[in-house]
Amino acid sequence: MATPANDNIPTPARQALDALAVDAEDPAALDTLASSDVLVPVPDDAGEAASADPSLLALPVLDQPGGGAPVVPVFTSELEMADLLPSVSQYRMVPLGALAAQWPEEELSLAIDGSSDHGLTLTSEGVRTLLARPAG
């Protein structure tokens, strides 16, 4: 498969993740990340209704090795998603801040570009505290 040349250009979300790797509390990077769209894989078992209805979002939940909190993987680009989950055939583009604002109360971590050098994993509390932005 040929990769378009612009796939190697870092997106603002990717640049924010790089900045957060240096300073985990960088407010500008957190704002940029929260205002970015991320790709949320549609789980295979989501059903046709959930896949077709834009108001519904089924989160893909993966179990972590070693018994850690379950994790929801999201990605900043198709390339990042293909590296970790090459079998994903469908995804939704979702504003990360809006997703974080509706994050479930239970222990559920969020992994952004989880398999990359610039990946970021947040606890449930971290998602709501650092990334949640009011809708609007």
Results as ranks from 00 to 15, higher is better:
M1N: 15
P4T: 05
N6H: 12
P10H: 00
P12T: 06
L17V: 11
D18E: 15
L20S: 11
A21D: 09
V22P: 05
A24E: 07
E25I: 06
D26R: 02
P27M: 04
A29I: 08
T32K: 00
L33D: 03
L33F: 01
S35C: 06
D37I: 05
D37M: 08
D37P: 08
V40Q: 10
P41R: 00
D44F: 10
D44A: 10
E48R: 10
A52R: 09
D53W: 02
D53V: 01
S55G: 12
L57A: 09
L57F: 06
P60M: 09
L62C: 05
G68S: 10
P73I: 01
P73L: 02
F75A: 00
T76N: 11
T76D: 08
D83K: 11
P86L: 10
S89L: 06
Q90H: 15
Q90F: 05
M93H: 15
L96P: 00
L96C: 00
A98N: 11
A101S: 15
Q102S: 15
W103R: 03
W103I: 02
E105S: 12
L108G: 11
L110G: 08
A111I: 00
D113S: 01
G114I: 06
D117R: 12
L120H: 05
T121M: 13
T123A: 12
E125W: 06
V127Q: 01
A132Q: 03
P134L: 14
A135K: 08
A135N: 12
